[in-house]
C-alpha cells in the first residue's frame, strides 16, 4: 500500500474542520438568538459579527446595518461570505471531491445532498422564526457526516488527520462560544455579573454546546460562571471541552508517530503539551482572577490551535515555508479562522 498522499492528508484535515466549523456556527447562531435579545426585547446582532471579527466586512456589504435577517443570511446562505455555513459546506464538499477515491461513496453522497439542500435555501427560508429548525437541520447534517465517517473511513493515517482537523476546530470553536458570552455580556452595561440575566446567558452557552445535562451531572446545583468556564475548558470528560479535544490531538499525533513512523509528529506534540498546561488548575485560577482574563485565555488558546495547524501543514502537507495567503489558495481549499 502506498503512503498517504500529502494533499489527501491536508484534504481530510480540512474536510473534517469545515464540517465541524459549520456545526459550531449553527450552534453559535442558535444561542445568539438568545444573546441578541436583551430583557427589553431589542435585538443586537452585531455581537455575532464581533465574535467572528466580521463586522467590517458585513457593514461594507450591508450599509443598512446588522438586522436579524441580514446577519442570518450573511452567515447561513451568503455565497460571497467565506465564513457562511454555505461556504463552509462548499469548501468541505470541494475537499471531499478531491478525496473521492479515498472516502466512501456514502460519505460523499451525504455531503453532496446536504450541501445541495443548504444551497437550495431561499432568502425567505432563513428568517429568524425558522432559525431553530434550520440550525437543528444543519447540526444533524454535520453529525451525520461525522457518523458516516466514523462508520466507513478506513483507519489509516487519513483517519488521524481527519480526527486532528475535527478536534482542533472543535476546541477552537468552544473558546469562541465562551467569547461570545463574554462579549455579549460586556455589551450590556445594565447587567451585573452574577445577576439572573448573567446566569441565563451561561445556561444558553451550555445548551449551545450540548453540555447542560453533562454540566448538571458534574455540578448538580448552582451555575457559577467559573464552574461553567472551567467545565467548557478543562473537563476532559466533556466531548466539546478544549481539554478533551487537545487530548484527541495528542493521541492522534502519538498514533501517527508510533504506528506510522512519522517522527515529526513528536515536534507538534510539544506544542500541544504547552497549550495543555494553560488549562491546569493553578494557571486557570490566576486567569479567572484578572478582569479580562478569560477572554485573554480564549485568545491564547485560539492562537495556539492555529499554530498547531500550521505545524501540521509544514510537516505533513508539503508546505515548505509559512504560507502566504496566495500560496495557500493554490493548495486545497481552506481558510483559517485562527
Amino acid at each position: 500500500m502506498s503512503r498517504l498522499l500529502a494533499r489527501w492528508a491536508e484534504c481530510t484535515f480540512w474536510l473534517a474542520r469545515y464540517v465541524e466549523r459549520a456545526e459550531n456556527l449553527a450552534r453559535i447562531l442558535e444561542v445568539q438568538e438568545v444573546f441578541a435579545r436583551d430583557l427589553r426585547g431589542a435585538a443586537d446582532w452585531k455581537v455575532v459579527l464581533d465574535i467572528n471579527a466580521d463586522t467590517e466586512r458585513f457593514l461594507a456589504a450591508h450599509p443598512q446595518g446588522p438586522t436579524a435577517d441580514a446577519v442570518l443570511r450573511f452567515y447561513l446562505i451568503d455565497r460571497d461570505n467565506p465564513t457562511s455555513i454555505l461556504c463552509d459546506l462548499r469548501a468541505a464538499r470541494e475537499n471531499a471531491r478531491q478525496l473521492r477515491p479515498l472516502i466512501s461513496t456514502e460519505l460523499w453522497t451525504h455531503l453532496n445532498v446536504f450541501y445541495n439542500r443548504i444551497a437550495g435555501l431561499g432568502a425567505a427560508e432563513v428568517g429568524e422564526h425558522r432559525l431553530a429548525r434550520l440550525c437543528a437541520m444543519i447540526k444533524e447534517g454535520c453529525q451525520t457526516h461525522a457518523g458516516i465517517a466514523a462508520g466507513t473511513l478506513y483507519r489509516d493515517e487519513a483517519w488521524s488527520f481527519a480526527q486532528l482537523g475535527a478536534a482542533i476546530e472543535r476546541a477552537d470553536q468552544t473558546t469562541r462560544l465562551l467569547d461570545a458570552k463574554l462579549l455579549a455580556f460586556a455589551a450590556r452595561e445594565d447587567e451585573e455579573p452574577g445577576s439572573a440575566a448573567d446566569a441565563f446567558y451561561w445556561m444558553a452557552v451550555l445548551r449551545a454546546a450540548a453540555g447542560y445535562q453533562a454540566f448538571r451531572r458534574r455540578h448538580p446545583r448552582g451555575l457559577e460562571p467559573r464552574q461553567v468556564a472551567t467545565f467548557l475548558l478543562c473537563d476532559s470528560a466533556f466531548p466539546r471541552s478544549v481539554a478533551a479535544n487537545l487530548g484527541i490531538v495528542a493521541a492522534e499525533l502519538e498514533r501517527l508517530r508510533r504506528r506510522y513512523g512519522l517522527r515529526r509528529a513528536a515536534e507538534v506534540l510539544e506544542r500541544v503539551e504547552g497549550l495543555t498546561t494553560l488549562l491546569e488548575p493553578r494557571p486557570l485560577d490566576k486567569v479567572m482572577a484578572r478582569e479580562h482574563g478569560l477572554h485573554e485565555l480564549a485568545d491564547a488558546l485560539q492562537r495556539g490551535l492555529g499554530a498547531i495547524a500550521i505545524d501540521l501543514a509544514e510537516r505533513f502537507f508539503g508546505w515548505t515555508a509559512p504560507a502566504e495567503p496566495a500560496a495557500r489558495a493554490a493548495g486545497s481549499i481552506q481558510t483559517s479562522s485562527a
Binding site: L4, P101, Y260, L262, F316
Partner: peptide, 30 residues
Amino acid sequence: VFLAREMGVPLVEGRDLVVENDRVFMRTIA
C-alpha cells in the same frame, strides 16, 4: 475518481509528483 477507486490507486495531480534523478516520486506525508 471512479477509475482510481476501482483500481485502488492514488489519484494524483501534477503537483503531487516530482522527478528526482530521472525517477518519478509522489509527495506523501512521510
